[in-house]
Design a protein around this nucleic acid. Structure first.
Length: 173
DNA sequence: TGCACGGCGCTTT
DNA sequence: AAAGCGCCGTGCA
């Protein structure tokens, strides 16, 4: 017996002002987003965007526009649907809470923990943030340690700083 | 300011 | 079953 859903993902590159992100879509929506890997601009693109299913082509365009907006510190007009089914219930709750942080605002790991009703699960929240499959659009960069310290970032603190800076957030030195 | 530590909830091995 | 975290408050120099 084979399931006909989610057997395969559509991989596609998204060009931005800071390099090319790699996006993965399922038939449910955007599954993951990967930062441009250093000095590695052109992974050969096996499928042209022409072969992508219509829905995926639409989401791709929306995602690209949303990325561009966020990199300019602006609020995206539209977001693609997220397929975060890979996460545990807890992780999905954390990711949804992060997605609700407005552009230009910040939260602490503790605040996210409270927002999902587990005020003491602070470390677990940190772990779940690190597991966020859709960085930038699910703004894990807007989650800082208590008292404004920058905290961590799995893709590298440089990216976190850049994103915060573009959104006009100032960090304590 | 800075470091050390204990406790915490969840994921991963 | 146990380790290991993108944490956080406290306490001490």
């Amino acid at each position: 017996m084979k399931s006909k859903h989610t057997l395969h993902y559509h991989a596609t590159e998204l060009e931005t002002s800071v390099g090319s992100f790699l996006a993965l879509f399922s038939d449910q929506g955007l599954v993951s987003l990967a930062f441009p890997t250093q000095g590695n601009p052109a992974i050969p693109q096996p499928e042209s965007t022409g072969v992508l299913p219509p829905a995926v082509r639409r989401w791709r365009k929306i995602t690209e526009a949303a990325l561009a907006a966020l990199l300019k510190g602006k609020c995206p007009q539209e977001m693609p649907p997220f397929d975060i089914s890979s996460g545990t219930e807890f992780q999905q709750a954390v990711w949804r809470a992060m997605a609700a942080i407005p552009v230009g605002q910040q939260r602490s790991y503790g605040q996210i923990a409270e927002a999902i009703g587990r005020p003491r699960a602070v470390r677990a929240v940190g772990q779940a943030c690190g597991a966020n499959p859709i960085p930038v659009l699910i703004p894990c960069h807007r989650v800082l340690a208590a008292h404004g310290a920058i905290g961590g970032f799995s893709a590298g603190l440089e990216w976190k700083r850049l994103l915060l800076q573009r959104e006009g957030l100032i960090l304590p030195l």
